[in-house]
Each structure stands twice: as C-alpha cells, then as structure tokens.
C-alpha cells in the first residue's frame, strides 16, 4: 500500500498565483485528472509533484515522507512523461527503447516487437526517430510505461498529437495500471472515455 499526498500546495510564477492551498491524496488504484485552461499551471503542478521544481509553500509526501528527503526512493517509484518525449532523434527506435529500459531499472527483459506492436509502430525498430512523425514519437515516448516497474505515473498531456487509436491504447494502459493497484496523475483538457473507472478531478484556473 502506497500513498501519495499533497498538502497545502501553493505555486506563484511571475507574480501570479497559479494555485493555492491545494490538497489531494492518491492511494493504490486511484486515477486523477488535472484539467484547466492553457497557462493554468497543469504542467507546473506535475513538475512540482515529481520534484523537478520546488513549491513556494506546501509539502508533497510519498508514504508520509517528504519527497525531498527520500528522493531516490520516491524516484524509483515514479514514471514521469513531460511535454518533451525524452527520446533521441539520432538514435533508432530500438536503441531508444533499450535506453529507456536500462534507465527504468526494470529487471524483466523487454520484448521490443510486441511493445512496438502494442503502441502501433510495429516494424520501426531500425528507423531513426528523426524520420518519424510527431505522433509516432509521442507513442515511443509513452512506450516507457510498458517497461517501468514504477507505481505512480505522472503524465503531462499524454494524448497530445496522438490519433484516436493511440488515445485509446494509452487510456486502456492507464486504466489497466490503476486496476492492478497503480496510481496515475495526468494532465489533459479533453474529456476521457474511461467512464467505467472512478476518476478524481482537479480543476485549475477560474473557469
């Protein structure tokens, strides 16, 4: 049983209060969507949650321990995918996936062809990432999620540039992860078709 909780979080950027007094908590199996208009601080909130930036006030806890005090323990439990895909244009798809797999620290071997097939880019092993389209790159960035042993996923606009089919794959992946006891926080402004799963909501901004 793991608990991720955020207490009294405040963020001020360029003299503007993005959010104040934010509290939420996730337990095993919880799914949280952050939505809000552009510039309302969705990405900032996710970056705060993973510890890339520090909050002006407020604390973030992993199992009742401040994430700043247990950084590597926390980091081995999370998988974060930001706006950038974190893949190298000058490496082939297979080289990128090997690299992700090494960094994820997962002991299980990885089966490239089946992962590539699952994310709908089958047969691209030897292709350089720079030759792929934006949507295909996004899919390869998201391939991280198939390999990571992490419990908590934090995804920033995971559906951006994805087509309808890609969106469905990732939605299914998210629901499946939560159903097996994982936790997911994602930022998106679209509505989701995950109607059969209880979804927590955080709405940022004043609309």
């Amino acid at each position: 049983m793991s608990i991720f909780s955020v207490k009294n979080l405040e963020c001020i950027r360029r003299d503007k209060v993005l959010f104040q007094g934010l509290d939420f908590m996730l337990e095993d199996g919880d799914l949280l969507q952050i939505d809000g208009i552009n510039g309302s601080g969705k990405s900032t909130l996710l970056q705060l949650c993973v510890g890339l930036i520090r909050a002006t006030t407020g604390t973030i806890f992993w199992n009742a321990e401040n994430i700043i005090d247990c950084r590597y323990q926390f980091q081995s439990n999370i998988s974060y995918i930001g706006h950038a895909d974190g893949i190298k244009a000058d490496l082939t798809v297979q080289e990128n996936i090997t690299l992700m797999h090494s960094l994820s620290g997962s002991p299980a071997a990885v089966d490239y062809p089946s992962i590539l097939k699952l994310i709908g880019v089958a047969g691209t092993e030897k292709v350089f990432v720079k030759r792929l389209s934006a949507g295909q790159r996004r899919r390869i960035g998201l391939a991280r999620l198939f390999m990571t042993p992490a419990k908590l996923w934090l995804l920033d606009e995971p559906f951006n540039t994805l087509d309808k089919y890609g969106k469905t794959i990732i939605e299914q992946l998210i629901v499946q992860h939560c159903a097996t006891g994982g936790m997911v926080i994602f930022a998106a402004h679209q509505l989701l078709e995950m109607a059969d799963y209880t979804l927590q909501h955080i709405h940022l901004g004043h609309h």
Binding site: L52, Y72, Y80, A84, D85, G86, K88, A89, S104
Partner: peptide, 18 residues
C-alpha cells in the same frame, strides 16, 4: 543542449539512478 531540448535531462534527473 540536445538532452535539454528533447527532455532527456528530465528523465535523467527523475530516474532511480543518481
């Protein structure tokens, strides 16, 4: 530079390795 632009640095910072 390129690691910063394509988000690799974020992944390095947040990986389980120092």
């Amino acid at each position: 530079r390129t690691d910063f632009e394509d988000g690799s640095i974020e992944q390095f910072i947040l990986s389980r390795y120092p």
